Computed example of a mutant assay.
Amino acid sequence: MIGQRVAKLRAARGESLREAALRTGVSHTTIARIEKGEVTCSFHSTLRKIADGYGVRLEYLLTGREPQQDFYEAVRRLPPDVRARLYFVHPAERTRLVLEYLLAEFPEEFTLEQVAQNAGVEPRRLQDFLARQDRPADSDELYLRVAAALGRLTGIDLHWIRCGCAPDEVPGHLSPDTLAAYLAVVRKAVEAGVRPETLALAIDLLSVRSEAALAAGRA
């Protein structure tokens, strides 16, 4: 399967084995052996060169899965009420959720020690962070380090950590102030137990009344 994924990447760009070798720094004979399912003595480091050369993550070559896309899809599958709550938790909590997901779903690719090293913190501090036992004074500095490390390791956008959504989920014409105001309204609705469809209906009614008022004013 790994060989098939390597061959697919090469074929998608219409490259020969020698062209793939120039792109990745891996000899064409080694790439050919990998595509045939043969393993080299430096298999892991060789695959990393191929992944870097083709702009994919090593996890994709190893498992066929992309942590970033898997995570976004998992979030989109959440029930609407659970999904809405993610907008209103502290970014540190969203960072924990991402880390917990990766450790559970990609145990061979993401270890606590690996993330701690990438974030420049001791594994024990990261364990405390996951257990929600980190000191409040350290929380902001720690979650920012961990969030940046997860972004580097997976490609999950830091916008999601900060705002609870991916950048492409936010309409481009909304200013930060407008988006904050809308989120404040949604927060009130969630806290009051107002169902999303009820809130949408109320907005539609307000729009109709506003249009009617404008029409009356023009008359």
Results as ranks from 00 to 15, higher is better:
L144F: 02
Q127D: 03
F129L: 07
V26C: 09
E15K: 02
I2Q: 07
R65P: 05
A137H: 05
F129P: 04
C163W: 14
R33A: 13
P176S: 13
A51F: 09
V186A: 15
R187D: 12
F129V: 09
F71Q: 01
V26F: 07
H159D: 12
F106W: 01
A32I: 00
Y182P: 00
T178H: 10
R23I: 09
V98Q: 03
V39Y: 10
K188R: 14
V115L: 06
R187W: 05
I31K: 12
S42P: 00
E59M: 06
P79A: 08
A20M: 15
L9V: 11
A119W: 03
A213P: 00
Y54W: 10
D81A: 14
G164P: 10
R218D: 03
V146L: 13
I50M: 02
T46S: 10
D52T: 15
L61D: 09
A166K: 02
R33N: 13
G151M: 04
E109L: 02
R132S: 06
L102G: 06
R162T: 01
V170A: 13
R33E: 11
A202Q: 09
T178W: 01
G172W: 11
A215N: 11
T154I: 05
F88Y: 05
T29H: 08
G120E: 00
E169W: 07
R85G: 02
G53F: 11
L17T: 01
T63L: 12
E100N: 08
L62Q: 11
G151K: 04
Y54F: 14
H44R: 15
D140L: 07
G55Q: 10
E73M: 05
L183P: 07
A137Q: 13
V186C: 11
E100K: 12
A92E: 04
A32D: 13
I34C: 07
P107K: 04
L142S: 09
G164S: 07
A219C: 06
D140E: 15
R85I: 00
Y87Q: 07
L126E: 02
A147W: 08
S27E: 08
Q4C: 02
A200H: 11
D204R: 14
V186I: 15
L126F: 04
F106R: 04
Q117A: 12
E169G: 05
V75Y: 03
E66I: 12
S175W: 03
Q114N: 02
V190S: 09
V170S: 05
L179P: 06
W160R: 06
G14H: 03
F43N: 10
R83T: 01
R10E: 02
G193T: 09
R77N: 10
I203D: 03
A149V: 04
A180S: 15
R10N: 06
A92R: 06
T198D: 15
L112N: 11
T46V: 13
A215I: 03
K36D: 09
G14A: 03
A181L: 15
L158Y: 02
A116R: 01
T63D: 04
R77I: 01
D138K: 13
